[in-house]
């Protein structure tokens, strides 16, 4: 069953620069994909476009989620349908507590008001799994959080909101080894508990892929996928760098 299908997507930034060029990708239910590539190839743009950012204009192609185009859906509707982006740099919002924010989000996603007791139990369990301090529940969203705490907070939101398609945009940036292990274990556990959930990992490095093994690894260059293979491709990139990608053999362009 297809979960996410991106067809020949062309995306332009507001200043007129073409960022994604005939980008195509198919992710089926329960699959784990990784997109790797050097800086400035459009990886983060891709994640924002899937989520519905209006910083970019889709000038050609389509994004289908569970078989239906989502291009005309607003950001919040895409999220309520189960798409979840773990941000590279989550913003901080002074004055809005984590618990208030997340309870509002959960009520929106479920379409009904969530009881306080149920919510607190969910939070306690998820925060325990992520080894987060209890007081973070009552602190403003990401305010004065370290890089690691911000990423844990993103995964906390994922565990509470239970999305069907998760996009991890540079999850490993700003994380120390121990924190990376904790968040990756939680993502892995989430996938085990929700086997129909699909995962798209966007990363520069293969480090995160050692914790969450993808079935498909794609290399992205200049706005499109230039190579697709399995985990061996990530290991080869680690060894030879992205410049060596073109000279590699045995890997087909993914269609």
């Amino acid at each position: 069953m297809k979960m996410l299908e991106i067809k020949e997507l062309k995306v332009r930034s507001k200043d007129g620069k073409d960022i994604l060029k005939d980008f195509s990708l198919l992710i089926k239910k329960g699959e784990v994909h990784a997109i790797m590539g050097p800086n400035g190839t459009g990886k983060s743009t891709l994640s924002k476009v899937i989520m519905g950012s209006d910083d970019y204009e889709v000038i050609h192609g389509d994004i289908l989620y569970n078989g239906t185009s989502i291009l005309n859906l607003p950001v919040d509707e895409r999220a309520r349908q189960g798409i979840f982006l773990v941000n590279q740099n989550p913003v901080s919002i002074e004055g809005v507590t984590n618990s208030e924010f997340l309870k509002t989000a959960l009520s929106s996603v479920r379409g009904e008001n969530v009881g306080l007791y149920e919510f607190m139990k969910l939070m306690e369990n998820a925060m325990g799994d992520l080894k987060m301090r209890e007081d973070m529940m009552h602190r403003s969203i990401n305010q004065d959080f370290s890089g690691g705490e911000r990423k844990k907070n993103e995964i906390l939101q994922m565990k509470i909101l239970k999305p069907k398609l998760v996009i991890l945009d540079e999850l490993d940036s700003g994380l120390d080894v121990d924190s990376l292990k904790i968040v990756c274990e939680n993502v892995r556990q989430y996938l085990e508990e929700n086997p129909e959930t699909s995962l798209l990992i966007i990363t520069h490095y293969s480090r995160i892929l050692e914790y969450i093994k993808p079935q498909y690894v794609h290399v992205m260059k200049d706005g499109k996928i230039v190579q697709t293979s399995d985990m061996s491709l990530a290991l080869e990139i680690e060894k030879n760098g992205y410049d060596g990608v073109n000279s590699m053999s045995g890997n087909d362009v993914y269609e």
């Binding site: 950001v75 919040d76 941000n87 913003v91 924010f101 989000a105 929106s108």
Partner: peptide, 24 residues
Amino acid sequence: EKMFYCRMRGIQEQDVYFLLTKSM
């Protein structure tokens, strides 16, 4: 950015305005 972040978690625009107004 804050609007996008909140809406990205499924919160409708009207409810985001409420949260941000309250915080301010």
